[in-house]
Design a protein around this nucleic acid. Structure first.
Length: 764
DNA sequence: AGCACGCCGACT
DNA sequence: GTCGGCGTGCTC
């Protein structure tokens, strides 16, 4: 390994000519050097206006679009530096504060700037399209038109109808409105344009209409106090502060957000609201739009490139003041951002799991800090990290403990199912409770976090199990509409059921365990006169199906709801009074130390679905471990006590948030290649750590591995990982900064797929 | 990551 | 004699 830290050839020292530093996405740790086709780099005063603009560059034998991130002396041999083909933007597309933020993300996650920019920009912008985007044309009546259009001949009925529309409507007319008046609208509008009676402008690119205002709820004292604390901070211009808003389900967090947003909008500033992937429901958008009475830009995975581009441009130009979006919206540019909100901050969908593995929550806190604006992190069940930050006085705690209206918190009880024969997954006590609640005409929700019919297909004779050919995992049996089939939930591999056991030829193939499909079958059998609705990824695959099913459930058209965790988040089922959790035991003893935290959060989320109206809710939790100390803590003393105990356990075990981790993952078709890469990396890290320790030897570094990933083979690749942990985040980062150029240059690295996961959330 | 170059087997 | 297999190596 060489010790060339820039990863570049030595520059000719006789020249320090300034060149463009261009962030290209690819295996480059640092930006690449290019000469300017217009020689704008000759004038230092111009430099600030060059940084943040897109350029088209020659790259090998093709051309790419990339961003200028700096103007500085060349690091590369001058004769090898190529000249850019053209400037795409006249003005920077990324402003200094955006670049500072992206640079911080690049440094923190040790990801090349080109990759970070790629993650941050919408595809259209990455592809070189113009930054601004306009919707369809709209027309406004002019002063002259106002005089003339009243005096149209009586017999020109169609024309008069359109004119009437122009005279009465206060906002510009679009083609839909005009078309509704007369089929010849285009001819008339063109005629009036020529006469100067109407004028044409570009309308906004979004189509979302502002919802009709709904009833306003007065805030209770708790809510008002939370709003006041944040708003007073905004008003005083004190800059950055982070608040953890901990409010139990039904305590009205959304009203608090709305009141805060309202105040910030009044000041003429913008707001960013991050929501989990599943949380961006039409009801949520409707609620914000109806309350705020202004258009809201959206950004989520179901949107197409045009819609993303539109949202991006609308907030950048300041035309729209509120952006609500999932993870990737954290990168949206703003003209004048005044407040950041992140709802359900504990949700795992905020962590990107491929490419640049960023945590939208963590980097939003940083962004708020850079922009000197407050941030509110909301949750009923905050992450241990955030509670830790409250303890460390980095976050200020705001609590909401009162449920709105008369609703009481549900009673949660553990049901010991040890020794009970429960082939159908529902024990006798839960079944009895279901009967009671159903007889009273109420809804029941059964939660089972396992989709499909059965997780295992097994030969009764020899014990053979249907395995995925490309993963170390069982294939799940699914009951399709026409036939049964086997599906791997990890790689999507699908196949038909074998007629007989491939190992011994026996025809005694049995299904073991239960998924939501089998549960549905059983429940329909038990309660034939009741309507059963199953809501999981399979039953909601079709577009709009999720909406349809949840609305059906909310209207009370179903008696029994069966669902996976997608049912637990963001939906209100006012008639549900009994919630049954069928199997939470996987969460108690997992190799992933975060599993208990997840289990607790999910349990309370699901429990929160019960008894939101007047009727008191009941929650029954089936478990084989009724004595599990953390589970008991959660049920008897609540989430706060659970979190405190869990944090103490983490401290004892030297785990985050007490320690800082980085996971190096590696996969290859050949297992040895992956192991070689990680072993060589480990040796390099040990060596570099020694040099770091020479300055001050007061910190700990633990290297754990290489070990195989919990699922060693996935999609035909062998997967290994090396865990780094330290009690000093700066030291850990220094170590990675020292090590990274070596990794990029290592020939071993090119034979495998590897990535860094800073603050890993999952071990899979 | 792509994409060309390069050096060996089965085909018109 | 060629077409094409995917190993190796480079991109400012």
């Amino acid at each position: 390994m060489q010790s060339n830290t820039s990863g570049q050839d030595e520059a000719d020292t006789s020249t320090n000519k300034a060149v463009l530093k261009v962030a290209v996405s690819g295996p480059f740790l640092t930006p690449l050097d290019y000469l300017d086709c217009d020689n704008l780099t000759e004038t230092p005063e111009m430099w600030p206006r060059l940084i943040g603009r897109r350029v088209e560059i020659p790259f090998r034998n093709r051309s790419l679009i990339a961003i200028v991130v700096a103007v500085a002396p060349a690091d590369y041999a001058l004769e090898k530096i190529k000249t850019i083909l053209r400037w795409i933007d006249e003005e920077p597309i990324l402003h200094p504060q955006d670049l500072t933020f992206l640079q911080w993300v690049s440094d923190y996650y040790h990801a090349p700037m080109g990759e970070v920019i790629n993650t941050a920009l919408p595809k259209r912008i990455r592809g070189g399209e113009e930054a601004s985007i306009h919707g369809h044309d709209v027309w406004t009546i002019t002063a002259l038109g106002r005089e003339q259009l009243q005096n149209l001949p009586a017999k020109a009925k169609a024309k008069r109808a359109l004119a009437e529309q122009f005279l009465t409507c206060e906002t510009p007319l679009n083609r839909e409105i005009c078309k509704a008046q007369t089929a010849s609208w285009r001819k008339f509008v063109n005629e009036w344009l020529d006469l100067g009676w109407v004028s044409q402008t570009s309308g906004p690119c979004w189509q979302e209409a502002v919802a009709v205002p709904g009833p306003q709820h007065a805030l209770n004292s708790e809510q008002q106090s939370a709003v006041d604390q944040v708003v007073s901070h905004v008003r005083s211009g004190d800059g950055f502060a982070s608040f953890l808003l901990q409010g139990i389900t039904g305590s009205g967090k959304t009203e608090v957000y709305l009141a805060m947003v309202e105040h910030v909008l009044e000041m003429g500033r913008q707001v960013l609201i991050l929501v989990p992937e599943i949380g961006l429901t039409p009801q949520m958008i409707q609620r914000f739009s109806a309350h705020l009475q202004r258009p809201i830009a959206l950004m989520h995975s179901a949107m197409n490139d045009t819609q993303r581009h539109c949202a991006w441009h609308s907030v950048r130009s300041g035309e729209v003041s509120v952006l609500m979006g999932t993870r990737s919206a954290v990168f949206a540019p703003f003209k004048d951002l005044g407040l950041c909100i992140i709802d359900e901050e504990h949700d795992t969908s905020y962590k990107q799991q491929d490419g640049v593995r960023y945590s939208a929550r963590d980097i939003l806190v940083r962004r708020a800090h850079q922009l000197q604006v407050p941030i509110v992190l909301g949750s009923a069940t905050p992450s241990l990290e955030s509670l830790f930050n409250v303890d460390q006085q980095r976050y200020r705690l705001l609590t909401l403990n009162r449920r709105a209206g008369t609703a009481k918190p549900p009673k949660i009880r553990l049901i010991d199912i040890r020794g009970e024969k429960i082939q159908e997954g529902v024990g006798a006590k839960l079944k009895a409770a279901m009967q009671k609640h159903l007889q009273a005409g109420q809804q029941v929700l059964l939660f089972l976090n396992r989709r499909g019919f059965a997780p295992v297909l097994m030969c009764h004779e020899c014990g053979w199990q249907a395995q995925c050919p490309s993963c170390d995992a069982n294939m799940t049996l699914h009951q399709g509409s026409y036939h049964q089939y086997l599906l791997c939930h990890h790689c999507g591999e699908q196949m038909n059921l074998p007629e007989s056991c491939p190992q011994c030829g026996s025809e005694e193939l049995h299904t073991v365990g239960q998924g939501t499909e089998r549960l549905e079958e059983t429940i329909v059998e038990w309660f034939p006169e009741k309507t059963v609705l199953r809501i999981d990824r399979d039953s909601t695959r079709l577009k709009g199906k999720m909406e349809e099913l949840t609305q059906q459930a909310q209207k009370g058209e179903a008696d029994i709801l069966i669902g996976t965790q997608m049912l637990a988040k963001g939906h209100h089922f006012p008639k549900v009074t009994l919630v049954g959790l069928l199997d939470i035991d996987q969460g108690l003893f997992s190799c992933d130390y975060r599993a208990t935290e997840r289990m607790a959060q999910l349990l309370l989320q699901v429990a929160g679905r019960a008894g939101r109206a007047e009727d008191e809710g009941e929650v029954l939790v089936q478990t084989h471990h009724p004595q599990h100390p953390l589970l008991l803590k959660l049920i008897n003393e609540g989430y706060g006590a659970f979190a405190e105990a869990a944090l103490a356990e983490r401290k004892e075990a030297h785990l985050p948030p007490w320690r800082f981790q980085c996971l190096v993952r590696c996969e290859a078709h050949n297992a040895q290649d992956a192991l070689d890469f990680l072993n060589s990396l480990k040796a390099g890290l040990e060596l570099q750590w020694q040099t770091l320790q020479q300055e001050s030897a007061d910190t700990v570094l633990e290297l754990w591995g290489p070990v195989s990933a919990p699922m060693m083979r996935r999609q035909g690749r062998y997967r290994y990982q090396l865990m780094l942990a330290s009690d000093s985040r700066p030291k850990l980062h220094q170590l990675l900064t020292l090590m990274l150029p070596h990794i990029y240059q290592s020939p071993l690295a090119r034979k495998v797929r590897w990535n860094l996961d800073i603050d890993p959330q999952d071990m899979y």
